[in-house]
């Protein structure tokens, strides 16, 4: 069975949990210790995706680009985003400004990859908040303005909630586009 390799990126402000989400997905581990990412680190993860055909599945290898988060002083290098088939754009539910900055990240990714690419929004650190309601308006507005967003998830790298779902959904949508 052949393996289809696809590049995806995780982007967002610093400290939102991009590295932790990847680590949870790839290594099944989590650490509370914050270690800021510099530059870019690439991880591989192979997934078996079911297809419509009987007894048939596809192996998809994600090359996941864990990209240094945006700070007040340094933006995201556009060269990292080139050639990506999809992106997980991450915000921290405990920091409103990271949610407000999502549109900026969406615009950057879309400007570098103008062809059909898929975006998932991850509202991370769900384990640290009581309810999801306060951001529903922002979330709905983002979805209505950006037709590349295929889904949004409330995630927790700590508990693993929705992490696998999110990556598999992105993989299925990218493969469906091929």
């Amino acid at each position: 069975m052949s393996i289809i390799s696809q590049k995806i990126c995780t982007i967002g402000d610093f400290g939102v949990g991009k590295t932790s989400l990847i680590r949870r997905f790839v290594e099944r581990e989590f650490s509370d210790e914050y270690l800021s990412t510099v530059g870019v680190k690439i991880s591989r993860k192979t997934m078996d995706l079911a297809t419509d055909k009987p007894d048939n599945s596809i192996k998809v290898q994600f090359l996941i680009w864990d990209i240094e988060g945006k700070t007040k002083f340094k933006g995201i290098a556009p060269s990292y985003l080139q050639g990506a088939k999809g992106a997980i754009i991450v915000a921290d539910l405990t920091r409103k400004e990271t949610i407000l900055n999502l549109q900026e990240h969406i615009d950057l990714f879309a400007s570098i990859n103008p062809k059909k690419t898929k975006i998932i929004l991850a509202f991370n650190k769900f384990d640290l908040v009581d309810q999801e309601k306060p951001i529903n308006i922002i979330k709905d507005e983002l979805i209505s303005k950006n037709n590349r967003i295929i889904s949004t998830y409330y995630t927790s790298a700590k508990t693993g909630e929705n992490v696998d779902n999110m990556f598999y959904t992105l993989a299925e949508n990218i493969i469906a586009e091929k």
Binding site: V38, G39, I42, L63, S79, Y80, Q82, G83, A84
Partner: peptide, 24 residues
Amino acid sequence: IGLEAILQEIFSKQKLSFKLKDIC
């Protein structure tokens, strides 16, 4: 992986060079 189109642009001289910085 994913940069194949950019590399072909360099081969065909549509692009002079390309740089990726700070890969860990």
